[in-house]
Design a protein around this nucleic acid. Structure first.
Lengths: 337, 337
DNA sequence: CTGAAAGCGCTTACAG
DNA sequence: CTGAAAGCGCTTACAG
């Protein structure tokens, strides 16, 4: 079956391609009768135009890329949905790009700036490290959602994030308040100056203030998946069975840990307490419901979109803004025995 | 900052655009010294070429669209990942397109065939109904993954699916075997000739064979989300508190139902048994672990990709193949009291 | 309100 | 092994 081009439509409608282009783009300067005639032909042919050809013309409006790692990450996907919701109706087209586990999202951004004429981008999650240097090669506004880019030397990068250090402290405080002292922390690279490093620092702040020493062997470096957390937790609790509480740096990790605990006969929260992070939907339905640090997804999305559009349209400078998070007390934390 | 074009690179490297194009596409017929020179310039400029311009040339190889509803649907996203995994290395580029809750995926396919020169597509999940008529306007091979397209009048559509009727029967049989008789079914449109309708039919087969009457008021039409299932279940159990088992047509629904049960003081599986469907990863970690009908994600993905590529490359006819599913017995089903 | 023509950044025969 | 030129399907001044 034939794929029609604007030329075919023009011929069938007896007008020029210019005119077809005009009605395709809903421009006002077309005679009503002409418009209807062309629209009829387009409908018959199910014609919608070729995106590549259209995209080739530069003045094609703003296009922004939303970059995230993981099609199966519930938190980041919820964030992406929210970003798209706020983007809706704006004078820019948003495309979401998933990067692979082992891919480099910064190089992806650089590539996109060429390949798809992307003029701005929003990074969802992730972290900023030396790889980010390549971003200096592209002169494009960007905003990092959920992590701080304040320390990075990226003049065109803004960021929207919760105060991870404070929230890490509150998460730990919740455990301390319940009387726990042998507390494990399940997270990523604790040394990083990213969200995870901040959460860890906050947790240490709380321990220090409470005068409780942190047992270094209770820091657990885990993959952020159910299976990763589960396997790690099984191994950890075999080594450190007297641990009575866990601060997990994501809800997914928290759930994997809770499952592992259950399987070795430790109840949550009766025997071991667990606090999660992110506040994904599942945290409200898991059994037990998760006590967790809920990131304000809608607000992060809204601020990120607003900031980026401001940089793009009004040439506003990037900002680094923190939004309020909430520690939600639910069922997975109980008093130490 | 300047966005370089192939012309810029050619000038900087002192060669023609043809040559740059050749090294960009890694063609063999370029002098090694020339290639290196050009590659050096490209690297300096972070040049990767413009996807729109490239895509505009027709002989650009096969491109297939993977269409699914819901960026937050864990089952369909796992399927998409698997499809991409099998697609990797094939001589075709795959793009995944998410359609909105209220969008029409068939019109999306038609649009994509024009806009992005898509020459084949794989539908993940969903259902076939009268809206599918538009597909007859495009002469493109397609395969429906997880649902049967055998009855549809779509000459170019193949499908890969599990035998939903048989598995619906087995799911129900599990409940009957455990001694349950007051069983509810939580699903979508039970009348449809789609996967859900088949599951329901299978469930009825089992009840009939067991000589157990199905109480029509125990069929519950629910949205396939945690919240939807939870809310529906709360309402349902207030009306039919003597129900002792539930066949949920997706794991997500099963988990929402279990949470609701928990909240009204009914334990699973001691008081109420629940069987799910799909076999998503979370079903192995939820507490209790879900007894569920596991769809063979990898196999469905592999067969779908293989079939579509066969239709595309070898002009093979579409087929309708069923793959084996497995009912996994875990913790959410127990004996009736 | 309408159309002829140039051009977007590539790729691809074709010629050398 | 290399390059000049045509063309992919659109959009956009420009002219009428």
């Amino acid at each position: 079956m034939k794929i029609y081009t604007i030329k075919d439509i023009a011929r069938k409608a007896g007008v020029s391609v210019t005119t077809v282009s005009r009605v395709l783009n809903k421009r006002p300067d077309v005679n009503q009768a002409t418009r209807e005639k062309v629209e009829k032909v387009m409908a018959e042919c199910h014609f919608t135009g070729n995106a590549n050809a259209r995209g080739l013309k530069q003045a094609d409006g703003t296009i922004v890329a939303v970059i995230l790692r993981g099609r199966e990450n519930p938190f980041l996907n919820a964030l992406a949905e929210a970003v798209l919701r706020y983007a809706n109706g704006l004078d820019a087209s948003f495309l979401v790009e998933y990067v692979d586990e082992k891919a480099d999202e910064f190089q992806t951004a650089v590539r996109l700036s060429h390949e798809k004429r992307v003029s701005g981008c929003i990074f969802l999650g992730g972290r900023i490290d030396e790889r980010a240097h390549v971003l200096q090669h592209i002169d494009m506004p960007m905003v990092f959602a959920t992590i701080s880019a304040g320390q990075a030397e990226l003049p065109r990068a803004g960021s929207v994030y919760i105060d991870n250090r404070t929230m890490g402290r509150k998460a730990m405080q919740t455990l301390l308040d319940a009387g726990h002292t042998r507390i494990a922390v399940f997270g990523g690279d604790r040394q990083g100056d990213d969200g995870f490093g901040q959460r860890f620092k906050g947790a240490m702040d709380a321990m220090q203030a409470a005068g409780v020493a942190f047992d270094e062997e209770r820091y657990v470096d885990t993959r952020f998946s159910l299976k990763g957390a589960y396997d790690t937790a099984r191994g950890f609790f075999a080594m450190k069975p007297d641990t009575t509480a866990v601060f997990a740096m994501s809800d997914t990790v928290a759930m994997g840990v809770i499952r592992a605990l259950q399987d070795i006969g430790r109840r949550v929260p009766e025997d071991v307490s667990v606090v999660g992070y992110d506040g994904i939907e599942m945290s409200k339905y898991f059994i037990p419901r998760l006590t967790t640090v809920a990131q304000p997804i809608d607000e992060i999305a809204r601020e990120s979109v607003t900031m980026l559009m401001g940089m793009l349209d009004q040439n506003e400078p990037p900002r680094h803004i923190t939004v309020d998070a909430e520690l939600i007390l639910r069922e997975s934390v109980g008093p130490a025995n």
